[in-house]
């Protein structure tokens, strides 16, 4: 587990059982099994994992919404299970399902929540910043998923918290709202807020997170900055320089001989090729020369480094979705 100078959240060996469940013959189900993490001030910490990995349960234990079965949690130095209004005023929460009353209109609802704090953010400024004004006369029930998500984010921020929990913040957001939301989150991080978010989207983690915990089967299986995770092979504990070159060209080409040793060539569909491995400049030069000699112009050409998705696959042997 990483150490940070000023952690806002420290979770050590969290265990959470739910049930008893009829689907398990009345047995308890362990949804979190020994998860440990820290999140720092002025940082975005992401819990990345598939649905059902235990991310939301972990967040809810840290927010005091669920009582943990075992382990310790320190949120701003306090135990969330026994925390009072003082701690809650310093922590903002955006739930996965929003938690907004369907009959409410956004601005009166935000003013209501603002009334719970001594010195809340300016509702009008927040409404303006998140583009809520344009649908402020619509009830929550009739908002799109992305609009609801923006109102829920505003409700989480209205108390000007030191720690912000975001459960799947980009769910339902169109590309534009997503940019607006991500810009705001990054700005809040730069202003010193400690932000903890869950996501099953690699792209979210790659774009936002300063530090990522990969969660699988109820505990953390890998952690690091996005760059660290991409450079490191967790199954063999070695550094990774792999890249994949994708291209479309006439089917049935045989060019393995022109490439260096150790590269994997695959024609996944007729005319759709991929070359994976420690691709170097020599390989690219040899390949393009081979094309030029035969007057072959690929219809498409794309070079990709490893993604967090590949990292997740290495570690868990499963796709993230």
């Amino acid at each position: 587990m990483r150490s940070t100078d000023s952690p806002v959240l420290t979770i050590d060996g969290l265990i959470k059982d739910v049930g008893p469940l009829a689907s398990l013959d009345g047995k308890m189900l362990r949804v979190v099994s020994g998860l440990s993490m820290t999140a720092g001030r002025g940082q975005i910490t992401a819990l990345l994992g598939a649905n059902g990995a235990g991310k939301t349960t972990t967040l809810e234990c840290a927010q005091g919404l669920q009582k943990r079965t075992g382990g310790t949690i320190s949120l701003l130095g306090a135990d969330p299970d026994t925390a009072g209004a003082d701690l809650r005023s310093r922590v903002g929460v955006m739930l996965q399902d929003g938690g907004l009353p369907p009959s409410a209109r956004p601005i009166p609802l935000l003013r209501h929540v603002a009334g719970m704090y001594r010195d809340p953010m300016d509702v009008d400024a927040l409404v303006e910043r998140l583009g809520i004004a344009q649908f402020s006369r619509t009830s929550v029930r009739r908002l799109s998923g992305g609009q609801k998500q923006r109102v829920a984010l505003a409700a989480a921020l209205i108390g000007n918290p030191e720690v912000l929990f975001l459960d799947e913040p980009s769910a339902g957001l169109d590309p534009h709202s997503r940019q607006v939301v991500f810009d705001l989150i990054a700005e809040l991080r730069d202003a010193g807020m400690g932000i903890i978010l869950t996501t099953h989207l690699m792209d979210d983690a790659e774009r936002l997170a300063d530090y990522v915990y990969i969660i699988d089967g109820g505990h953390n299986v890998a952690e690091g900055t996005v760059a660290d995770l991409l450079r490191h092979d967790h199954s063999t504990d070695t550094a990774i320089t792999d890249r994949t070159l994708f291209f479309d060209a006439p089917p049935g080409l045989e060019f393995k001989d022109v490439l260096g040793a150790g590269l994997q060539v695959l024609e996944s569909r007729a005319g759709s090729y991929s070359i994976t491995g420690a691709l170097g400049p020599d390989d690219l030069a040899a390949l393009t020369a081979w094309w030029a000699a035969r007057n072959i112009m690929p219809a498409s050409l794309r070079l990709e480094a490893r993604s967090l998705e590949d990292v997740f696959l290495d570690i868990s042997g499963r796709d993230l979705r």
Binding site: A85, D86, G98, V113, A152
Partner: peptide, 8 residues
């Protein structure tokens, strides 16, 4: 659940 995470 949301309101119980606020100071309320």
């Amino acid at each position: 659940r949301f309101l119980s995470t606020t100071p309320l």
